Measured scan of single mutants.
Amino acid sequence: TETYETTDETEARKIAEELKRRGLTFRIERHGTTIRIESD
């Protein structure tokens, strides 16, 4: 499991693209301005 936290929408998108490219599944949670991406 890898966890990323960012407040930057663009960075979050880049992380999501990278995880997809590596064939990982992940979920995105939003907590206020923080975007949390957690891979399975």
Rank of each mutant, 00 (worst) to 15 (best):
S39F: 14
T1Q: 10
R13E: 10
R21E: 05
R36G: 02
T1Y: 13
I37A: 01
E5H: 07
R22C: 12
T25S: 13
R13T: 09
E17G: 08
L24G: 02
I37P: 00
T7V: 07
E5G: 01
T7F: 06
R30Y: 14
T10F: 11
T1G: 12
L19I: 03
T34R: 07
R21G: 06
K20A: 11
A12N: 00
R27F: 10
E11K: 07
T7G: 06
R30I: 14
E18F: 12
E18V: 07
A12I: 04
D40E: 11
E38R: 13
K20M: 12
E18A: 11
Y4N: 00
H31P: 00
T25F: 10
Y4P: 01
I28E: 04
K14F: 09
A12Y: 05
T6P: 02
T3L: 13
I15A: 00
I35N: 01
L19R: 00
E9L: 10
T34P: 00
F26S: 03
E29I: 15
E18H: 09
E29W: 14
F26T: 04
T6Q: 00
E17S: 10
T3F: 14
T6S: 03
K20R: 14
T1F: 14
D8I: 05
E29A: 08
I15G: 00
I35Y: 10
E17L: 13
E17R: 12
H31R: 10
Y4W: 13
T33A: 13
T3M: 11
D8T: 05
E38I: 15
R30L: 11
T1W: 13
E9I: 10
K14W: 09
T3I: 15
R36E: 00
D8S: 13
L19M: 07
T33R: 10
T33I: 11
A16K: 06
T10Y: 11
T34D: 02
E11S: 06
E5F: 12
I28Q: 03
Y4S: 00
E11P: 01
D8L: 05
T7E: 12
G23Y: 02
R36W: 07
Y4C: 05
R22E: 00
I28F: 06
E9W: 14
I37W: 00
E29D: 07
F26G: 02
I15K: 04
E9T: 05
K14M: 13
